[in-house]
């Protein structure tokens, strides 16, 4: 991973508060776990029926019956619990999931999230993503500021089919931390060496700048 991405993931890890129940989505969000101290008090949840996810294991040490929702072989920690898929999503829908971190294709300035389908190109199904996005108490997105063609992923409105409406609270990119405020995208922090102007340039809708100094990460 590039330095910029590592810094972004490390910054996102600071979003997790002690005592939270957290679900980390597949891809970049999963890497957040690497930036949590081993004694940090947090409960990681995975949709396929585990609360209290422990470290990922290599194949030769893996338990064939113990994976996370992304198929990675994981482990338990003292206090872990296993449950069925209905119980797992009861936890999500009833408000017991404090925070989820998800990837994105697009985020709109009103917090709509599109991350499950690109018509004609990518349609594997949403898995548990809709419920995570719609019902976690707080939804944070980890994504690159632009797609591979350089188009902004943060847009006035999503063009792709949405996962959930008005769900995203905060976006972490390699360039900035951006909140979804009532008035739209609002710059919170800048990556070191990146200017507010550069972030605005790479954002597909107006970017509200804070008064005074902008903290860096």
């Amino acid at each position: 991973m590039s330095d910029a991405r590592t810094r972004m993931v490390a910054r996102a890890a600071r979003e997790i508060e002690p005592g939270m129940v957290v679900n980390l989505g597949i891809g970049l969000p999963t890497k957040v776990i690497n930036h949590l101290a081993s004694d940090f008090p947090v409960c990681l949840h995975t949709e396929n029926g585990l609360s209290g996810i422990g470290p990922t294991l290599p194949p030769d040490r893996a338990d064939r019956n113990l994976i996370d929702a992304g198929g990675a072989y994981v482990s338990t920690v003292p206090g872990s619990a296993f449950f069925d898929s209905a119980t797992s999503f009861a936890l999500v829908r009833s408000g017991r999931l404090d925070l989820t971190m998800l990837g994105a294709f697009e985020v709109s300035q009103t917090g709509d999230l599109a991350n499950w389908k690109i018509p004609g190109k990518f349609s594997p199904g949403a898995g548990g993503g809709i419920e995570l996005a719609q019902k976690a108490r707080r939804v944070a997105v980890l994504t690159t500021q632009t797609d591979r063609a350089g188009n902004p992923k943060l847009k006035a409105a999503c063009d792709l089919p949405i996962t959930a409406r008005a769900c995203v609270a905060r976006v972490f990119t390699e360039m900035a931390v951006i909140d979804i405020a009532p008035a739209g995208f609002s710059l919170v922090e800048l990556a070191e060496g990146v200017s507010a102007g550069e972030v605005a340039e790479a954002t597909g809708a107006p970017l509200i700048l804070p008064d005074g100094d902008i903290p860096t990460f």
Binding site: S85, A86, S88, F89, R93, E131
Partner: peptide, 9 residues
């Protein structure tokens, strides 16, 4: 396709 928890329910 179903949302995962909805398929379960």
């Amino acid at each position: 396709f179903n949302p995962q928890g909805i398929l379960a329910e």
